[in-house]
């Protein structure tokens, strides 16, 4: 297991490098939230989820919903690393004609099942998937990654209510709680605390973790799968911009990309010599 964790950590490091390079090339996109979510996305795709990059529509796959769709670079580099599409495609992020849209688009990108990006809508879709899979007697699971700022959207709580009501224990929401949103601290813009208490009050199984500790992420995903009768929320404390000190904990890096001057230092932080 120790080796597995170390592998995942190394994978996550490489994905961070890919995020930085991709966003440096596109000069448009969301750096901070991609870097805060990537460890969880990495653990899902390289450890937890059943999926088949050679057959994106494989019936036996688990489902992934990036509700905080602006972290699309985190999803795209992961899908490319898995082999859903060539890594060269990443250099076309947000360009006219590219399948890699600014926010995830199921119409064009292999491995993307729903369109997200307008915040607050992904958890409803994830629960719809969970209900449909259960109806078919399938054991597949559905994972949704949400932002903490996103929890300000009322629809999230409509979905939270419904998922608990329908006992969607095949649904797991991962809250990327990096504490920052466009206008500043989540706690100052519109305080969503306590996230754990809120989900508990809505009838969810709640697990709190450090969202950059691969061992905790993996353990939480396993616990979530084992929990029956209610959906699970993994409330993950994260650092916006994690891995690159230039970007860490800066709300200003929500929607700003690495520039030419920052790139070498960013890559150095990530242990990358190229």
């Amino acid at each position: 297991m120790k080796e597995k964790i170390a592998d995942l950590e190394e994978k996550a490091r490489r994905l961070r490098v890919a995020i930085v390079k991709t966003l440096h090339k596109s000069q448009s996109g969301h750096t901070g939230g991609s870097l805060s979510a990537i460890d969880m996305v990495c653990a899902l795709y390289f450890h937890k989820m059943r999926h088949n990059p050679a057959e994106p529509a494989w019936d036996g796959r688990d489902r992934f919903v990036l509700s905080k769709g602006h972290a699309a670079p985190a999803l795209y580099v992961t899908l490319a690393e898995c082999g859903y599409f060539p890594a060269e495609d990443l250099m076309m992020l947000r360009r006219l004609g590219s399948h890699l849209q600014g926010h995830p688009d199921s119409k064009g990108t292999p491995g993307v099942d729903v369109c997200t990006g307008s915040l607050g809508q992904g958890l409803s879709m994830a629960n719809g998937m969970a209900l449909g899979l259960k109806l078919d007697g399938k054991e597949n699971r559905v994972y949704a990654v949400l932002g903490d700022g996103e929890l300000q959207e009322g629809q999230i709580w409509e979905a939270a209510m419904a998922a608990a009501h329908y006992k969607s224990d095949n649904l797991c929401a991962l809250i990327d709680s990096n504490g920052l949103q466009i206008d500043g601290d989540v706690a100052k813009v519109m305080n969503v605390s306590s996230i754990s208490d809120k989900f508990k009050a809505f009838g969810w199984n709640v697990i709190e973790i450090d969202g950059h500790d691969m061992g905790q992420i993996v353990a939480a995903l396993d616990q979530a799968e084992a929990h029956k009768g209610a959906p699970t929320a993994i409330v993950a404390k994260t650092v916006k911009g994690k891995g690159v000190h230039l970007f860490e904990n800066k709300a200003s890096y929500h929607g700003v990309t690495p520039n030419d001057d920052e790139l070498p230092e960013a890559l150095r932080c990530l242990g990358c010599c190229d």
């Binding site: 409803s124 629960n127 719809g128 969970a130 209900l131 449909g132 109806l135 078919d136 629809q155």
Partner: peptide, 11 residues
């Protein structure tokens, strides 16, 4: 949104 999710799994 729930309907969209149900559609995404073939309903």
């Amino acid at each position: 949104g729930t309907a969209a999710g149900l559609a995404a799994v073939g309903k």
